[in-house]
Design a protein around this nucleic acid. Structure first.
Lengths: 204, 204
DNA sequence: ATCAAACGATACGATCCGTTTCGTTGATAT
DNA sequence: ATATCAACGAAACGGATCGTATCGTTTGAT
C-alpha cells in the first residue's frame, strides 16, 4: 500500500543527481493511478500531480509512457507469476496460464502490461521497448517449462521456440481481446494441443 | 482512388434518414487520412474536415474511433486478403499468413490495424467492438481453412476452434511485436506444428 | 401541414500533450 | 571556500483533440 496523496512537503533537489525519493514517489503514484483508473486514466499530468512532482521531472527520466509502464511492471515483478513444476507439460501450462491470467486480471501490475501492449502499437519506439526490453525476460520462464518437457523427452527440443511463440501468442490474444476469465477447460485443451504438437513422431 | 478534398458543395440533409453520400465521403476521407498520416494522425476532427462533414455526424454513426476503423479495415481487407486453397493445411496456412502479413506491412489500412488493437486496450467499449464486431467476421476465413482440413480428414474436427485460436494468436503476437517481415521458414514450421497438433491420434 | 431526424457549421469547456522558464537546492570539482 | 552543474517543483505556454451543445436548414414520412 502507498500514499495516494503524499502529505509531505515538496521534495527539493538533493543536488545534481537523481532523487530516489522522487523516483519512488512517481513509481508509487503511477502504480496507484493504474490501479484506480486503469490505462485510460494513466496520464503524465496526473502521475506528476499525485507524486507531487513536476512534469519535466517525469519527462527527464521516462521519455515515453511505455518507459514508465515498464518500470512500474519491473518494480513489482518479483512477487508475480512463478514457474510451476507439476511434472508434466500440460500440467505446467495449466498452472502457469491460470496464474498469469489471474495476474493480468487482478493486479495493477498486470494492467500495466496490458497498457504497455497498447502503447507499443502507437509508435515504433515503444514497440521496440516492448519487444527488446520486456519480452525476453517474460519468455525465459515459459521457455523453461518447455525445456524441462524436452529434457523429459515429452517434446522434441527443436520445437521449443515455436511452441513458446504459439503459447505466448495464445495468451496475448486472450489478453488483448479481453477474455482472460478463468477457463481451465479451454486452457487445458490448448496445453494438450501444444504438447501433442511438440511430441516426437509416432513412428521413430 | 477517392477525392482527397471533395470539391462539391455542402451536402445538406436528405431527410430524416442516413445519407449514403455522407457515409461514403466519411469512409473515403478516413481511408485517405489513414493512408497519408497513419494511425497517429487519424482523428475525428480531421476526418470530418476532409469529408466536409460535421463532427456530430461522425459521432452519431461511429461512437468511437474503433468503430470507424473497423469499417474502414473490413472493407479493405476483404478486397485484399483472400482465402487460398492449396490442398493441404500447411500450404493454406503458409499462403494465407504470407498474404496477411504482407497486407499488414504494405498497406496503410493494414498498418492501421495495430492502432485498432491499441484502441481496444484503452476502453472496454472499444475492446468489445474488436472482439464482438470485428473478430467474428475475420475468423471466418481462417476457420474455413481448418474446416476444409477436417473435411479431408487431416485434422480432427473438434480441434478446429482451438487451432484457430492458436493460429490467430500467433499472427497477432508477431504483429504487436513488430515482427511481420516475410519469414516463410518460420511460418512453415508453425503451420506444420498446428497440423500435427490437430492430427488424429497416432495409435488408434 | 406537421413532425421527426439527419445534415453542416460553429463554438464550447475540458483535458492532455510536450516544452519552456524560473528560482532553489545541494553534491562535486577545483 | 567557492564556483559549477544538474536535478528539483512550480507554473505557464501553445497546440491539439476530445465529446457535446446549439443552431438553422433540408427533406421524407405521417
Amino acid at each position: 500500500m502507498t500514499d495516494e496523496t503524499p502529505k509531505t512537503g515538496r521534495r527539493a533537489s538533493i543536488g545534481a543527481r537523481r532523487s530516489p525519493a522522487t523516483e519512488a514517489a512517481i513509481l508509487a503514484a503511477a502504480r496507484d493511478l493504474l490501479a484506480e483508473r486503469g490505462y485510460a486514466g494513466f496520464t503524465f499530468e496526473e502521475v506528476a500531480r499525485r507524486a507531487g512532482a513536476g512534469k519535466p521531472t517525469l519527462y527527464r527520466w521516462w521519455p515515453t509512457k511505455a518507459d514508465l509502464l515498464v518500470d512500474v511492471y519491473s518494480a513489482e515483478k518479483a512477487a508475480t507469476v512463478r514457474a510451476p513444476d507439476t511434472g508434466s507439460l500440460p500440467g505446467d501450462l495449466l498452472a502457469y496460464t491460470s496464474a498469469l491470467w489471474g495476474f493480468w486480471r487482478d493486479t495493477p501490475t498486470g494492467r500495466a502490461f496490458r497498457g504497455l501492449i497498447a502503447e507499443a502499437q502507437a509508435g515504433d519506439v515503444a514497440q521496440a521497448t516492448l519487444r527488446d526490453k520486456f519480452l525476453p525476460g517474460r519468455l525465459k520462464d515459459v521457455r523453461g517449462l518447455f525445456a524441462r518437457a524436452a529434457a523429459r523427452g515429452d517434446i522434441r527440443s527443436d520445437t521449443i521456440e515455436d511452441l513458446v511463440t504459439l503459447y505466448i501468442g495464445f495468451n496475448w490474444f486472450h489478453l488483448t481481446t479481453g477474455r482472460i476469465e478463468d477457463d481451465a477447460p479451454a486452457i487445458t485443451r490448448i496445453a494438450l494441443l501444444l504438447a501433442k504438437a511438440g511430441a516426437a513422431s509416432s513412428s521413430p
